[in-house]
Amino acid sequence: MRLFLPVLLVTLALCCCETNAATCPAVATDIASFFLLPDSLFKLQLIKYQAPPEAKDATMQVKQCINEISAGDRYIITETLGKIVLQCGA
Rank of each mutant, 00 (worst) to 15 (best):
M1Y: 08
M1W: 02
M1H: 11
M1T: 11
M1P: 11
R2C: 10
F4Y: 10
L5G: 03
L5D: 08
L5Y: 08
P6K: 11
L8A: 06
L8V: 10
L8K: 10
V10M: 07
L12V: 06
L12G: 13
L12A: 14
A13S: 10
L14F: 04
L14D: 10
L14T: 13
C15A: 15
C17S: 08
C17M: 01
E18I: 07
T19Q: 08
T19E: 05
T19V: 02
N20S: 13
N20C: 10
N20M: 09
A21C: 04
A21Y: 05
A21H: 13
A22D: 12
T23E: 06
T23S: 14
C24T: 03
C24H: 13
C24M: 04
C24V: 02
V27L: 15
V27I: 15
V27M: 14
A28D: 07
A28L: 15
A28Q: 10
A28N: 09
T29V: 08
T29Y: 02
T29I: 07
T29N: 04
I31E: 01
I31C: 04
A32S: 15
A32T: 11
S33T: 00
S33G: 15
F34V: 05
F34Y: 13
F34A: 15
F35T: 01
L36M: 15
L36H: 07
S40L: 05
S40D: 11
S40C: 00
S40N: 09
L41R: 01
K43G: 01
K43W: 02
K43V: 03
K43S: 07
Q45S: 06
Q45H: 12
L46C: 13
L46R: 07
I47V: 14
I47Q: 09
K48G: 00
K48W: 01
Y49N: 05
Y49P: 04
Q50E: 08
Q50V: 06
A51S: 14
A51N: 09
P53C: 09
P53Q: 14
E54F: 11
E54G: 01
K56H: 03
K56D: 03
A58E: 14
T59I: 14
M60A: 00
M60R: 01
M60D: 05
M60I: 03
V62M: 14
K63I: 11
Q64P: 01
Q64I: 02
Q64N: 10
C65L: 14
C65G: 02
N67R: 13
N67Q: 15
E68Y: 03
I69A: 08
I69K: 04
I69Y: 09
S70R: 12
S70G: 15
A71K: 12
G72R: 04
G72M: 01
G72Q: 09
G72L: 10
D73W: 00
D73P: 00
R74N: 03
R74F: 07
Y75E: 14
Y75I: 09
I76K: 12
I77W: 05
T78L: 00
T78H: 00
E79W: 05
T80S: 13
T80N: 02
L81R: 00
L81C: 02
L81Y: 10
G82D: 06
K83H: 06
I84S: 10
L86A: 14
C88E: 02
C88H: 08
A90D: 06
